[in-house]
């Protein structure tokens, strides 16, 4: 019978091999999440570190919880925080040039299409968020966790997660809106002038 994550972790207290199964279940998604945020080299390093830390603190895991994903994303996210400057630098480079340094090593050779203006504004807005806001909105949008799972992952109240999320959304929307109005003003002027 397939054991759930909680049962696997409980079993791994005495039998380290049980943790290998947890690794098989979650490694790829944790890796992909870190890759999206920091690039592939750091993803290799930090996803391994995530599982090592998870293993070390496995006896603090509440075995009643059948899904370990929030816990693992919480550990990963904590490691990502230490590389916030790298993350912001890469986002800024993407926003500035339209070419994403993070997708550099993707297999596709589709001439690395530069992103459009909207995407660049969106990425610039992501770079502007605080560490806490970016953490929450990317766990929501990229890791596809619920607010309750995010609260569990980062060890805070769900209310706090919700308020950070709404603040992050607002900041991004404001930025997109401001950019749109700037363009609208420019094209109006052209129409009047031309």
């Amino acid at each position: 019978m397939r054991r759930n994550d909680g049962e696997l972790i409980a079993a791994s207290i005495d039998d380290a091999d049980a943790f290998g199964e947890l690794f098989d279940r979650h490694y790829a998604i944790v890796h992909q999440f870190i890759h999206r945020r920091l690039g592939v080299e750091l993803a290799d390093e930090l996803s391994s570190e995530t599982f090592v830390q998870a293993f070390k603190s496995r006896d603090s895991y509440d075995a009643g919880k059948p899904d370990a994903a929030p816990w693992l994303f919480g550990i990963a996210s904590n490691l990502i925080r230490n590389h916030a400057r790298t993350e912001v630098r890469k986002l800024r480079a993407y926003a500035r040039s339209g070419v994403d340094p993070v997708e550099e090593f993707a297999a596709a050779t589709d001439a690395r299409l530069a992103a459009g203006a909207d995407r660049r504004t969106l990425v610039a807005a992501l770079a502007k968020l605080s560490k806490d806001e970016r953490e929450v909105i990317l766990m929501f949008a990229w890791a596809e966790l619920t607010t309750a799972q995010i609260a569990e992952a980062i060890g805070t109240a769900e209310g706090t997660v919700r308020s950070r999320l709404s603040r992050a959304r607002k900041k991004i929307r404001d930025r997109l809106e401001a950019e749109k109005q700037k363009h609208a003003r420019q094209s109006n002027r052209q129409e009047v002038g031309g």
Partner: peptide
């Protein structure tokens, strides 16, 4: 906005079997 956000870097490669 959220749909767009989900699209950002959506295509980064998952690690391949050998790497895993």
């Amino acid at each position: 906005m959220e749909k767009d956000l989900r699209e950002v870097r959506k295509n980064v490669a998952k690690p391949d079997a050998d790497a895993i």
